[in-house]
Computed example of a mutant assay.
Amino acid sequence: MLKNIVVLCMTILAAKAQRYNEPWHKKWFPHGPGEQDSNQVISDTKNLYDAHHGIAMGVVDSSCDDGKINLHMDWFNNIENYTCFENRSYYLPQSTVHPILSVEQIPEEYSAPHKCMNESIEYNEIIPTFGTHRPLWAVYGEYTFLPKQRWLHNLEHGAVVMLYHPCANLNEIVMLKRIVKKCLYRHVITPYNLLSPIRPLALVSWGHRLEMSKVSPEVVVNFIRKHALNGPEKTHRNGQYDLMLKEQAQVISDMDDHTLCPKHTEKGIEMR
């Protein structure tokens, strides 16, 4: 019995000695020189943990989302996103095409997950009104282009997002922009080339979308007054993402937008 124990011990010692003679990457613990410490990455992720969203919102962090890294996960900086390459006549406003209002029933207990920039985010709807999005939301205002993975987070905070196809009628675009900008502070405006030629204009709020061929000020103001500020998270705090921001939003009534479209009268939006 004693002899067997001695032989076993010698075998274990020989195996350990063999490990010491192997290349460094097989014997270092927990990682070799120059390798990223996976334990540290886990620790950083835990610091970003949020019970409701998985990842905490509004935390600028290069290991997750700082508004600068891996932006190709949402879009490839392609000018087709914001430039018209088609015949604009296909997108002309038509008075016989009525607006379409879509409503999605979102359970009160629903909490949209946040994903870091190492993961892609896809949506089932062409114009999503809720869903997984990035931890950093957009600074309020008008953009040359802003991907939906950003403005969806703004919707969650009660914003109204104005979308327009790059080929939409310029007069209609200008009119809709003026109304939105004078209705509320919490707005985002961006081109969106997935809109149809029949209805190349849209307004989106949390759970609601309005698609239009042409602008009816009454319809637009009614949508904003009914559906703005209805996101599950009540905050006017501005975002952290501002890539391609053209014009930052101005306060209309106050930061909380207590009065929506205050300059709207029976004669329309006062443009001054």
Rank of each mutant, 00 (worst) to 15 (best):
N21W: 06
K226P: 06
E22F: 03
T259H: 12
A15T: 09
H258Q: 14
P262S: 00
Q248E: 15
L101P: 00
V180G: 06
I173T: 05
R150I: 12
I69Q: 12
D257V: 02
H187G: 06
D50S: 09
W151Q: 02
L245P: 07
V103F: 13
V188F: 00
Y164R: 04
I69R: 06
E125T: 13
D44Y: 12
Y49H: 15
K27W: 05
P217V: 10
E125F: 04
D65Y: 04
H258L: 08
A138W: 01
S89A: 10
P30V: 02
L71P: 02
K148Y: 09
E156P: 00
P93D: 00
Y90F: 12
I12Y: 09
T83P: 00
Q248A: 14
D254G: 05
R19E: 13
L155R: 06
P99F: 01
I173V: 15
N78S: 15
I121V: 15
P197A: 03
K267I: 07
E122D: 14
V174Y: 09
Y143W: 06
G58W: 02
H208V: 05
R134I: 05
V41M: 03
L155A: 07
D65F: 06
N21R: 09
V139I: 14
P232D: 10
M212N: 06
G58Q: 04
E104R: 13
S38I: 15
H236A: 13
K68C: 07
D66G: 07
S102I: 07
K46E: 13
P113S: 03
L101A: 06
P107C: 08
F130D: 04
K182W: 05
